[in-house]
Amino acid sequence: MASSSTGFNSGLDIAKSYYVATANPAPDHPALVGDVDTDLVVVGGGCTGLSAALHAAERGVKV
């Protein structure tokens, strides 16, 4: 994990954090091949994106 020598988190020594020590490697996700039929595409998996996808799917939108 790259760390910055300046900035907001510069003094936290993230490389020695509990998160870095216990995090699992990110799974491999192959690139999308072909067409996908959808009503809504959400770009981003943060809180807002996940909430938008969940609320749309609960209303029957193909997300």
Rank of each mutant, 00 (worst) to 15 (best):
S5F: 13
D28C: 06
G60W: 07
A52W: 06
A57R: 15
V43M: 03
I14C: 08
G11L: 04
V36N: 01
N9K: 07
V20I: 11
N9C: 15
M1K: 11
G46K: 02
V33R: 13
V61R: 08
C47P: 09
M1N: 09
L32A: 04
D13C: 01
V36S: 00
Y18K: 14
D35K: 08
F8P: 02
G46I: 06
V33Y: 02
C47E: 14
A53G: 12
V63E: 01
S10F: 03
G11D: 09
K62A: 10
L32E: 04
Y19A: 08
G46D: 09
V41N: 01
S4R: 08
L54Q: 14
D39F: 02
A52K: 01
K16L: 04
G45F: 02
L40A: 00
I14V: 14
G44Y: 07
V36C: 03
D39Q: 06
L54I: 15
S3K: 08
G45W: 03
T38V: 10
V63M: 05
F8G: 00
V61M: 01
S17C: 02
K16Q: 14
S51Y: 15
G45P: 04
G49Q: 06
S5M: 14
E58F: 14
S4T: 10
V36R: 01
L32G: 04
Y19S: 06
M1D: 10
V43Y: 00
G60H: 02
A26V: 11
E58H: 14
S10C: 07
P30C: 02
K16Y: 09
A26R: 13
H55D: 15
S3F: 13
I14H: 04
A15T: 09
G34L: 03
G34T: 04
V42G: 02
D39G: 03
K16E: 13
H29D: 05
S5P: 11
V41W: 02
T38H: 00
T6G: 10
E58G: 15
T6A: 08
M1A: 13
G44T: 06
V36I: 07
A23H: 01
C47G: 12
D28M: 08
A57V: 11
R59K: 14
L50P: 07
A52C: 15
H55V: 12
A2H: 12
S5R: 13
A31M: 07
T22E: 04
S51Q: 15
